[in-house]
Simulated assay, not measured.
Amino acid sequence: MNPAQIDTSVFNRLRFVLVETSRPGNIGAAARAMKTMGFSDLVLVNPRFADAVSQDEAVAFASGAQDVLAGARIVGSIEEALADCNYAAAVSARLREFSPPVVMPRALATELAANTGLQAALVLGNERFGLPNEIVEKCNVLINIPANPGYSSLNLSQAVQVLAYECRMAALGETKIASVIGFQGDAAGLADIEGMYQHLEQALVAIDFLNPDNPKKLMPRLKRLFARTGLETEEVNILRGIAKQILATRK
């Protein structure tokens, strides 16, 4: 296919990742919410039931979106779910001390629709416990849906619906880009960024800047710092090159 003919719309670049979902009905309802807004890429990380997508409750709540259910992939880890993504947004009603930058759904949707180089994922957690901190820290941003502060608890599928709607509106041109930068390289893959963090941590230990027995919050703070930058592939390579040189000189 001619590269010019490849559909780079957000509908083909956005994945919905549900982590450890308990109720098959919520999976079905999420599939329905996705399909009504034109999305279809659904990945489940360790759902409570291995056959969740085929259970009667899931099929009933999908209500016509059985094709999205049938196409859903079930994986064993968040790393598998994000393997070919270079951007991930954690969705949580609870703010975290060392979370990545917090953005609103509309701002996120605008960015995802405009930047065709992003292979993105929206990551939503378990109905009762949400997302653990270690998954949130792997993401580029934290999405907080501005709900009633007196009762801000959204059902899983409702959160999917809000986000899918905002992304659809952005794709249809209902929002405008607030700013444009000059040259923009390829966004770094999430696995590459995680590898860079591990490499950097080794280097910091080697120069006695980081005490592995008493690390405190250094690495979460560094992750938050870099998450605000929108790391590109070349930038990750530079940082890994620095870490490599540090390790080489300490041998």
Rank of each mutant, 00 (worst) to 15 (best):
E134D: 15
A147Y: 01
R250H: 10
S99I: 03
I242S: 01
E232M: 12
I78T: 03
S77L: 04
R13P: 02
L118F: 08
F129K: 09
N133W: 02
P47I: 11
E137T: 13
L124V: 07
V43T: 14
T21Y: 01
K35L: 13
E79N: 15
L42A: 09
R168C: 11
T36R: 03
V136D: 12
A83F: 14
D208Q: 14
D67R: 05
R168F: 05
F11Y: 12
G195Y: 00
A243D: 01
A81K: 01
G25R: 03
F98I: 08
L95P: 02
F226Q: 05
G230V: 15
Y151N: 13
R106C: 07
G64W: 15
L14H: 09
V68I: 06
A83D: 15
Q202N: 12
L247H: 08
I6V: 12
A113N: 02
F16I: 12
D7K: 09
A120F: 03
S63Y: 08
E79T: 11
I135F: 05
N237P: 01
G195C: 04
A58F: 07
N211H: 14
A159E: 01
S99C: 07
S63M: 11
A203Y: 00
S153T: 13
N133R: 05
V180F: 09
L163S: 00
L172M: 04
N155R: 12
E194H: 01
L82Q: 14
S40F: 09
P149W: 10
